[in-house]
Computed example of a mutant assay.
Amino acid sequence: MKKIVSVDFYAQFGFLKKPDINDGIYLTYNCLHKPALQGILGAILGFGGYSLEGEMEENQIPEYREKLGGIRIGISPIKSSNGNFKKDVIRFTNTVGYANVIVKKKQQIPSTLIINEQTLIKPSYRVFIELDINNEIESKLDLCLKNQEAEYIPYLGKNDHQLWWENYVEWNIDDTDYIPEKEYNLDSIFLKPYEDEKLLKSQRRVSLGDSKEKFAYFERLPKGWHKALPHYELGEFLYTNYQLQPEAKLSGLVKIYNVQRGNYVIQLF
């Protein structure tokens, strides 16, 4: 039997490193993504992660990825500015010995490694998780989230940024394969099915009298792991309070409700 639960993850700071940029400054993703969330859930359950070089066999998959890879999740930025979080650049010195040496003409020369790191300020996310209560691992995860218990201390991107969570909620599933028949709101980030603008076509112009600010936040985020290489698999994600068109044909839509929280439509992936 499957159910959907949600919790609100938050931290004072966060750093979800973009692996393709490290020249002069390390940049962060704005939104929590699925591979990072798998690591957080793995820490809560006490699963093993990436070991030191030489301790893992080539192409070996970390324990948390192997055991949590099939869980579907949904993510919503909360307490944000239209999906975006404030960021600042922190400058610090890496004092590890091997990081403070440069090689010139085959000679090691003492140097100082100064790092500029873009950091999220007070990021928070509502995470929806589909769990099978008949599965031992997923049932244990459910209890850990409900009781705010963790085997290892979870963090948001690096161990300087400890992570907490609150507001555990169980959701009733109204439709596990929701197919909208009219315009609707989607309450989580979702994968764009194509590159054009059909999703918001009828709402590009908003009346000046509309009291609710409209926004559309786009980000290219990891949606999983490459099947053959140890790399992220990326996807184009969108988060918006515009109503969406039913002909968009989004996959993984689920309609949920809670007596205290109301009705939501989210995408699980």
Rank of each mutant, 00 (worst) to 15 (best):
Y125R: 12
L120Q: 01
E136F: 09
Q107F: 04
S211Q: 05
V206Q: 05
R126A: 04
K105R: 14
P180K: 01
F128Y: 13
D174C: 07
E57A: 13
H231D: 10
T28P: 11
A216N: 11
N84T: 09
D160Y: 13
G157P: 09
Y168S: 02
G46Y: 08
V5W: 02
K3P: 01
I75L: 09
Y125F: 15
E213A: 14
L199R: 09
P193C: 11
T95A: 12
L208W: 07
I78K: 03
L199T: 05
I256S: 00
N84W: 11
L229P: 02
Q162V: 14
R72A: 00
Y29P: 00
K192S: 10
G69T: 09
K201E: 15
E149W: 15
I109G: 00
S251F: 10
E166F: 07
E117D: 03
Q260L: 14
L200Q: 09
G157Q: 03
I121Y: 12
K34I: 15
V169R: 00
N59K: 06
I133A: 07
I40G: 04
H161F: 15
Y10N: 11
T28G: 04
I179W: 00
N241A: 11
I61N: 09
S139V: 04
P123D: 04
P193H: 08
D23P: 04
N263P: 06
E58C: 09
K18C: 03
N258S: 06
K2Q: 00
R261K: 15
Y152K: 06
G97C: 06
L229I: 11
N22E: 08
K67V: 06
E53M: 02
N134Y: 02
